[in-house]
């Protein structure tokens, strides 16, 4: 175990080192731009996205217990998927000379996925409500 960890550790440091050397071989202004974007990724996640999700979690504690798992499923499925869809939903890369690029009805596609996820979440919510009622008859849900 110790040997495995040492070998992995050294390989990891070597990989990071090589990557940073490759990065520094780019023109100076590009290096700065890459560092800004990578740091922006950390700040965007830790400073914006994660606190927003924590806030949603706190808000969910105000809701009925049976509804919470369904909402968690909805968030986990639709949150990342919506982020993945941003480049196609915005069609930022579309070009007038190339109609074969970004040529699907993305909003309709995204709404179809949202609809499907809502159905799954509804199923989970109904299941949990029934279970909770059976486990604690008469208890406020």
């Amino acid at each position: 175990m110790r040997t495995v960890r040492s070998v992995l550790g050294l390989a990891g440091v070597a990989g990071v080192g090589y990557g940073l050397l490759r990065l520094l071989r780019l023109p100076g202004d590009q290096v700065v731009a890459v560092v800004v974007w990578a740091a922006g990724g950390v700040v965007g996640h830790d400073g914006v996205l994660a606190p927003a999700v924590v806030a949603l979690g706190v808000a969910a504690t105000l809701l009925a217990r049976w509804a919470r798992p369904a909402l968690a499923v909805l968030l986990v499925v639709l949150g990342p998927l919506t982020l993945v869809a941003v480049p196609v939903l915005g069609r930022f890369g579309a070009r007038p000379d190339n109609p074969t690029l970004l040529d699907r009805p993305y909003l309709a596609g995204w709404l179809a996925i949202v609809g499907g996820a809502l159905l799954v979440a509804l199923g989970v919510a109904l299941r949990d409500r029934r279970r909770l009622r059976r486990a604690e008859p008469g208890a406020p849900s």
């Binding site: 960890r5 040492s6 992995l8 550790g9 390989a11 990891g12 440091v13 070597a14 990989g15 990071v16 080192g17 090589y18 990557g19 940073l20 490759r22 990065l23 071989r25 780019l26 890459v34 990578a38």
Partner: peptide, 15 residues
């Protein structure tokens, strides 16, 4: 370049 940084730091993290 950042593929190497990401892969290396994943391996280091696993270690």
């Amino acid at each position: 370049a950042l593929a190497w940084v990401a892969a290396g730091s994943v391996v280091l993290h696993v270690a």
